[in-house]
Design a protein around this nucleic acid. Sequence first.
DNA 1: ACGTGCGTGTTACTTACGGTAACACCGAGT
DNA 2: ACTCGGTGTTACCGTAAGTAACACGCACGT
Lengths: 214, 214
Amino acid sequence: MDTTQRTDQQKSADRRRRELLEAADRVVLRDGPQASMNAIAAEAGITKPILYRHFGDKGGLYAALAKRHTDALLNSLRAALDAPAERRERVEATLDTYLAAIEARPQVYRFLMHPAEGGQVGDQGFDVGKHFAPLLRRMGEELAQVIEDRLDLGPGGQQLARVWGHGIVGMMHAAGDWWLGERPCSRAELVRSLADLLWGRLAAAGDKVGGPGF
Amino acid sequence: MDTTQRTDQQKSADRRRRELLEAADRVVLRDGPQASMNAIAAEAGITKPILYRHFGDKGGLYAALAKRHTDALLNSLRAALDAPAERRERVEATLDTYLAAIEARPQVYRFLMHPAEGGQVGDQGFDVGKHFAPLLRRMGEELAQVIEDRLDLGPGGQQLARVWGHGIVGMMHAAGDWWLGERPCSRAELVRSLADLLWGRLAAAGDKVGGPGF
DNA sequence: ACGTGCGTGTTACTTACGGTAACACCGAGT
DNA sequence: ACTCGGTGTTACCGTAAGTAACACGCACGT
């Protein structure tokens, strides 16, 4: 019958797709975002056209791959954000979760942050702003939602929450990237410094002697 | 004579180099980071090998090009940061300067943020963290220096300043990128919201009724 | 049993780009 | 007149994305 037939095929295709994604994952884990379609196909034991049949183009494969990791990381972050503890404690736990993730698998992290690389055709048309990694955008939106749901920010709070969501995620991202490259301090210290920043220590700090403050 | 000869040649080469950079600038302004070496050479009225003689490889050209814009933007930011005004006013002026710049020339902005794209060979070796746009790193370092110089942060202040420098720049960057894509509010509102975030409104906000705060 | 689709796989190709080698012109110094 | 260094070219290589065309196998209706 048509329905069962379609279901069987669907299941088979889905399993195949997952296998291909896992192969792609291994290659990306080894080669970073430079992983070529040929290499991924070889790792999966097949050839290029099959990849293209499943994912359309490189962007499609990368999007599917990114979605897996992004979903996983976002789940961890949500858990940290939802834990029963004081606000500052939860903020620190969330920061630490993110930093631990990028520390544990830097190649995956690189891939997630710069998935758009290497495309010489087709990418021409998309407007500014879209070039941002989907991970950052999604994290920003989710955090914005949490902020809006839980904090009383008065009138205009919704918009404020969105700005803050993206801003805080960007802060975390940039600081994490820099930290990962230079390792100037421990993870815990970084978390604490960033939380201090969010907690208004910038505004509260006194001027240094000899000039006007920053 | 040898010296004058060398000087003449040097001047000629420098002028040529500047012409080439201006041509490259026009192409990047039109095509964004996807600008190809062929296109740039054509715009300059010459062919590829000349570009390679002047800049080594694509990375060299992009670095030279990025340096121009980065220097220009950093000068504007320094001016805003050094203006004689209250701390918050200067922070807002700096944020606004940055946002006005990326708003005015989005293609250049895109190019500056993702200069490493398109390289399929050679980029393999560089470690995590290096893939960050030089502009962000330089802004982060400069801001860190300003913070360290002007704010009294007590013991460990130097490290704190560096974390904050990169963190604040990342916040500005991410929020700006998101804002540029969605335009959810005016520039002034965005500036105000970000400054509020830096001024500790996150910590000061009350919980919403019905649940624990964020 | 036999063709007929259809999904799965392949080889071989095109196109585009970064980068380079080899050759051509041209003006200055001996 | 002859070389020499700088400027320019054409023509090529290697690699990677993406595609067209062909080949195998397996369930299906007749």
